[in-house]
Simulated scan of single mutants.
Amino acid sequence: MDLSALRRDYSKTGLTRSSLQSDPFDQFEQWFQQATQANLLEPNGMILATVDAQGMPMQRTVLLKYFDRQGFVFFTNYESRKAQHIHHNPQVCLLFPWWALERQVIITGIAIPVSTGESLTYFLSRPRGSQLGAWCSQQSQVISSRQLLEVQFEKMREKFAQGEVPLPPFWGGYRVIPQSFEFWQGRSNRLHDRFLYRAAASGSSPWTIDRLSP
């Protein structure tokens, strides 16, 4: 299939050095709020890239649940494939593909587990069905049918019929501590605007900002 004619020109807006926030967390929050206000589907959906023990990269979409200046937090099964990758190599990359706004944000950093208390606080905020689902999925493992999942779900529903669903010992969060941010804004003629924030080794500002060629 020839896709060479499938193209569009990006012309919504531009991005200048003078319009950027000095702090990348502030810039991200500004863009995230705009993505939310634009009613994008899953504006907190982010592509998480990890690398396995053999150096093979892998990507998948996860949901950002909250962020602050300590980092970007998502939750998963600690026995999953992504968790195994992170255990071997905690260097990860996040990508927010906000195509309706002709934007993307790329964040590189180190993923570390959050505390059990932090995981519990979030787990208790989840819908009960999602809490039960965390107990019945051996994430990334081969299964013979969907029926096995549904049977296990009913077992967990019966097991925890009384009271709250407890936090599974194999489930929790990761915080990605950023080392760099790249803000990408599509422009006409493929002359896109790209600005890279990198953690500074020293100096009055904790971040350096450079424009990158498209």
Rank of each mutant, 00 (worst) to 15 (best):
P43D: 04
A161P: 03
V62R: 05
H85T: 07
Y10N: 13
Y66N: 12
S188I: 11
R198L: 13
G203A: 11
R157K: 15
R128L: 08
S119Q: 03
V51G: 05
W31G: 03
E29A: 14
K82C: 06
A161I: 10
Q37R: 13
S22F: 00
Q27K: 07
P90V: 06
G71K: 06
I86W: 09
A201W: 00
S115N: 02
Y197Q: 05
W31T: 05
G14C: 08
E150G: 11
D52W: 02
A199Y: 00
C93Q: 15
F72C: 05
T208H: 04
L64W: 03
R103I: 06
L15G: 05
W98Y: 11
Y122H: 12
G45F: 10
C136Q: 14
Y122K: 06
Q139E: 07
A49P: 07
V114F: 05
G45M: 13
V165T: 09
Q104G: 01
L64T: 06
H85K: 06
S205W: 01
S140K: 04
G186W: 00
W31D: 04
L63K: 05
Q138I: 00
S137M: 05
R17V: 14
F181W: 15
K155G: 08
F75I: 07
R198E: 13
F96R: 07
H88S: 14
L167M: 09
P166S: 02
R146A: 05
R190Y: 00
K12N: 14
Q147C: 02
D68P: 09
S202A: 15
Y122W: 13
M58I: 12
K12I: 15
I107R: 04
W207L: 04
F74H: 10
G173H: 04
G71D: 03
S213Y: 04
R126A: 03
D193C: 06
R17N: 12
K65P: 03
L101R: 09
S202P: 01
F74D: 02
V142G: 00
S18E: 15
E42W: 12
Q162M: 10
Q185K: 13
L149W: 12
V92S: 08
I177P: 01
N89C: 09
H87P: 01
V151S: 14
V105S: 06
F28H: 00
R7S: 14
P214M: 00
S144L: 10
A35R: 06
Q162W: 01
S4D: 02
P43K: 01
D2A: 12
F74P: 03
M56L: 12
P90D: 08
Q37D: 15
W31R: 06
N189K: 14
R126K: 13
Q147R: 08
R190D: 01
W31H: 10
S188C: 13
P178Q: 05
R175M: 09
G109T: 03
L64D: 04
L124H: 07
S188H: 04
Q21E: 13
L40I: 11
Q27H: 09
F170Y: 07
S4F: 11
L148H: 08
Q91M: 09
T50G: 02
P43M: 03
